[in-house]
Amino acid sequence: MIPLALDPARVTIALAGNGPLALRRLTQLREGGADPQVFSPEPDGELAALAGDRLVRALPEASDLDKVGVLYVMGLGTEAETALADLARQRRVLVNVEDVIPLCDFHSPSVVRRGDLVMTVSTGGRSPTVASLLRQRLESLFPEEWAERLRTIAELRNRRRAEGASMSEVARESRDLIDREKWLP
């Protein structure tokens, strides 16, 4: 596995699915800054509401996928998911079919977000339970105040770089601040 962090401002993401897994994935994508087109032939009320004007009440066609870089698929049944994964690959779109490892070009890690601090855990799709348990541990080790802590470190970095400090000086000063404030156990 090669971990990557995608910038949704540069990579167009779409979701094709129905049910609670589609709702969960759409929520996660939105938390990451994406506003994906949602293709759902039979969306429930919650999915339709969350998707809003980004909802298309059909599965994507080849022309739809020509505008997409990454496609998430779930809750459509084996036949539709397999066909959609094949179509996506033909269009050179990276695809993830939820919980169907042979149809996945990539796996989505379990994520902890603290502002711009993003920590992930992946088992390569082998054990979502292990990834979830480790994510929960990270959440307890890195509480919400880490969002502000990261802003503080970023301000220090930006100020010191503008003053002409080298990257090694900034790194040392950042470590000193973290140690002084006892942010890490």
Rank of each mutant, 00 (worst) to 15 (best):
M1Y: 11
M1V: 09
P3W: 06
D7V: 05
A9I: 00
T12P: 02
I13K: 02
A14L: 02
A14F: 02
A14Q: 01
L15Q: 03
A16P: 03
N18R: 14
L21C: 06
A22Q: 01
R24Q: 11
T27R: 14
Q28M: 13
Q28S: 13
E31R: 15
G33R: 07
Q37W: 12
F39K: 04
E42F: 06
E46P: 00
E46I: 06
A49R: 15
D53G: 05
D53A: 14
R54P: 00
R57I: 08
A58N: 12
L59D: 02
L59I: 09
P60S: 10
E61K: 13
S63W: 09
S63M: 08
D64W: 07
L65I: 06
K67A: 15
V68F: 05
V70M: 13
V73A: 07
M74W: 03
M74P: 01
A80P: 01
E81R: 02
E81N: 05
T82S: 13
L87P: 01
R91D: 03
R92C: 07
V93L: 03
E98R: 01
D99N: 04
C104G: 03
C104Y: 02
S108E: 08
S108P: 06
S110H: 04
V112G: 02
G115Q: 08
D116F: 02
M119G: 02
T123F: 05
T123K: 06
G124C: 06
A131S: 15
A131K: 01
Q136G: 15
L138M: 13
L138S: 04
L138Q: 05
L141C: 11
F142T: 05
P143C: 10
E144T: 11
E145C: 08
W146Y: 15
A147D: 11
L150Y: 07
I153A: 13
A154K: 10
E155P: 00
L156S: 09
R157C: 06
R159D: 12
R159M: 09
R160K: 14
R160A: 12
G164M: 10
G164N: 10
S166Q: 07
E169L: 11
A171T: 12
R175G: 02
D179N: 12
E181L: 15
W183G: 04
P185K: 13
